[in-house]
Structures are given as structure tokens and as C-alpha cells.
């Protein structure tokens, strides 16, 4: 073992929540299926238990694959206007490659990552979450207006890849801050230092976040349907 101090800090282990699906992996969008960590079948509650994630991927991976296969067979084999989609994506890539900003993608991403860790990491409160939200807002604008790409090549261009990835990360960060700010209690991994207790009276609810075409965020908080299992606290 090293005799010098080993730097230690918390790392991201799992994303609780994700694309809402039913037990067959069906999402709100017909024909779109999700399973695994990106999905939320609501089997994990607010704090996934150890080893249950792989179980989730195996069980719901299979179910959604079967359903997706059935779905494909059930719909008519229409012509999908692929050309227009490909053109749209090619343009998107070209725009990124040609962007003439002055900020590296990593710089923009790290700034957001730092704010997310500080504002919405292990412990959070109203102020810290609002701070994180404000940085995410700024990141959106920086991403749109000021990034630059050094690598213009077509082979294994990670510069481009990370730019595309950042766009998706911003979407995720945005839904995380909105979801967290909505929930006025502590529950599972959502640990607020300003409101510490769990509040089953008001918050036995899901948080659903939608983004409309124009970018506007819509938040819904439907009640949780409890059937067989009562929610209990995770204790060690």
C-alpha cells in the first residue's frame, strides 16, 4: 500500500430514475422501448439496493426486447423518411465541427459537472440546487454559442463525440435539478439538509419531467400506486 495519502471523493454509482416505462419496457412514445439504468420501471424506489440493478437489466431487458420484437411485427412496414433524418443529423455534426467558439467542450462540461457535484451531490439544499440550476442554464447557452472543436477528422473523433455527449448531459442535468427542486422532502438518495425528513403525506409521488419541442419544461407529480410492498426506509 502507498504510504502517501490516497485522494478519495464520492463517485456516481447509479442514476435513480430514468425514462418512464411500464413492466414491459414501453415508454410514452409508441415503438420506443427502454430497459436498464436509463429506464425507470419504478422497482427501485428512491434508493436502489445493491445488486438489484443487474437483476433489473436482465429481467426488463428480456421483457422489453420481446415486446419490441412483437411491436415491430405488428406495425405495417411503412417507408420511414430516413433521408431527412440523416440530413438533419449530418447538419448537426457539421455545425458542431464548424462552430467557431472559444471554449473547449471539456471546459464547458467540467464547469457544469463541478456545479452539479457541489449543488446537487451527496447533500443538497434549496440554495445549492438553485445554484446548480443556474449553472446548467448558463451551460446551455455556452454550448449553443461558444464551443469549438479542434479535431475535424472522421476517424475516432472523440472531440466531436464529447460535444454530442455534452448536449445529452445537459438534458439529464436539467431534469435532475428540476426534479430535485420540486421535491420538498428528503427521500432515499435525495438528501436535503434544509428539509431532512421523509414526508409520506405529501410526497408519495413520482416526479415526471417533460421537455417540449420549444424547450419548455413541464413537471408532473402523480401519486405512487402502492400494491404489494409498502415503502420502508433503507437501513443498514
Amino acid at each position: 500500500m502507498s504510504e502517501k495519502p490516497v485522494p478519495i471523493r464520492p463517485g456516481m454509482h447509479y442514476i435513480m430514475g430514468g425514462i418512464k416505462t411500464d413492466v414491459n419496457g414501453e415508454t410514452g412514445v409508441p415503438g420506443l422501448y427502454a430497459a436498464g439504468e436509463c429506464a425507470n420501471v419504478s422497482v427501485h424506489g428512491a434508493n436502489r439496493l445493491g445488486a438489484n440493478s443487474l437483476l433489473d437489466t436482465v429481467v426488463f431487458g428480456r421483457r422489453s426486447a420481446e415486446k419490441a420484437s412483437d411491436y415491430v411485427k405488428s406495425v405495417p412496414n411503412e417507408d420511414i423518411p430516413t433521408k431527412s433524418y440523416v440530413e438533419r443529423d449530418l447538419k448537426k455534426i457539421k455545425d458542431i465541427i464548424d462552430s467557431e467558439g472559444n471554449l473547449r467542450v471539456s471546459e464547458v462540461r467540467n464547469e457544469m459537472a463541478k456545479a452539479m457535484t457541489e449543488g446537487i451531490g451527496v447533500f443538497r439544499d434549496q440554495k445549492s440546487m438553485e445554484y446548480a440550476k443556474s449553472v446548467v442554464e448558463k451551460t446551455k447557452i455556452k454550448y449553443r454559442d461558444s464551443i469549438k472543436i479542434q479535431n475535424k477528422g472522421k476517424v475516432y473523433n472523440t472531440d466531436l463525440l464529447f460535444a454530442l455527449e455534452l448536449e445529452n448531459m445537459i438534458d439529464c442535468a436539467e431534469s435532475i435539478v428540476h426534479g430535485a427542486l420540486t421535491r420538498k422532502e428528503s427521500r432515499g438518495a435525495h438528501f436535503r439538509t434544509d428539509i431532512t425528513g421523509r414526508n409520506d403525506n405529501d410526497w408519495l409521488k413520482h416526479t415526471l419531467i417533460y421537455k417540449k419541442e420549444d424547450g419548455e419544461i413541464k413537471i408532473e407529480t402523480p401519486d405512487v400506486t402502492i400494491t404489494q410492498w409498502q415503502p420502508v426506509e433503507r437501513v443498514y
Binding site: 502517501k4 473547449r104 467542450v105 471539456s106 479535431n151 476517424v155 475516432y156 472523440t158
Partner: peptide, 24 residues
């Protein structure tokens, strides 16, 4: 780089702050 850096940390430093064309 930081004293405790791995070779990967150093390479990521290159990719993110010095040369975005480096592929790893």
C-alpha cells in the same frame, strides 16, 4: 499534474486541455 495522477489522468489532461485531436 497532481502528484497522485495516473498515466490516464495525464492523457485526459492532454486531450481536454492541450490537444483535442488525440484519440484514446
Amino acid at each position: 499534474i497532481h502528484q497522485s495522477s495516473t498515466v490516464l489522468d495525464a492523457l485526459i489532461h492532454v486531450r481536454e486541455e492541450m490537444d483535442g485531436t488525440l484519440a484514446l
